[in-house]
Amino acid sequence: MDMLLSLLRSMPGAISLGLIWGIMAIGVYVTYKVLDIADLTVDGSICTGACVCAILATNGVNIWVAVLAAIVAGMLAGFITGIFHTVFGIPAILAGIITQLMLWSINLKILGKANVGISARTIKVIITQLKTSNAIMALIGFVTVVIILLYLFFGTELGCSLRATGCNLNMSHAQGINTKVNKILGLVISNGIVALSGALLAQYQGSADINMGRGAIVTGLAAVIIGEALCSHISINFGVRLAGVTAGGVVYYIVYQIIVWAGLDPELLKMFAALVVALFLAIPYLKSTYFSYTPQFKAERKMRKIQARLAKKEAQLAKKAAKKGGKA
């Protein structure tokens, strides 16, 4: 009973963390789903958001200004990746990795050391894990604003052209859409959102750490995948999908909490998370190949295999016989 209670007590924390990572996942959704780019900048930009927010807040800047500055910093990171990708023609995934590496140095310079604390007692933070119920309410507010803004944006002429860019480059060019600018814009928006989640994460945890972004993309993708699974059957409405992605983040952290509670070695968590994401990413492919074979095809394939094996054996026997014959 005590065990169960301790699990229940850990839930508000899991939900808050899930919401923060849910915001991050919305950013990933913009690049991964809308723009069809796997952007690895996010591992760096989430940390950039945290660092900028932490440094400004500890130096007495208003926390809202600090969060805004964090968003701008994230946008700049996305802009750099966008330039690498569009102007210099570096494949998107490599452009993201390059920026991510660059950001590690930049983040260290911003922070000045590996870890900076944001004490909720001395600084007026927006959210803190010391008051999870307030944090959850505030985070739901953030999520709602982000979703509404994105929903409105993707309904505009510009937003529509951005979706077209992610869907069909040929068509976009033929319709006079500047796809390079749109790709940069998408990366800027995405990384701005990711940096926002970083700034919130730093406040919530009470510190910004140089290593806090490691593997963020995997968590983000996990949330996106869970979110798609949750709501793809309910509605195709874009807003609902984004809400689903956030819910995906929450589900991820609740499961995470349960696993920790069940006594799994926390050091192995990243490995399991990675494996689960790999499995989910593989599902569409597996569905379209191995699991789409008809029973008849499977039976026939089995027959072909057996026949091939028999033929091989016969050939071997024939060879042996020929050798023997030759010796004799």
């Binding site: 944006f153 309904g155 505009t156 002429e157 510009l158 529509c160 052209s161 319709q175 006079g176 859409i177």
Partner: peptide
């Protein structure tokens, strides 16, 4: 909207 600038008006 081919050949026109794409703004923040409704699509």
């Amino acid at each position: 909207r081919r050949g026109k600038s794409r703004t923040l008006r409704w699509a």
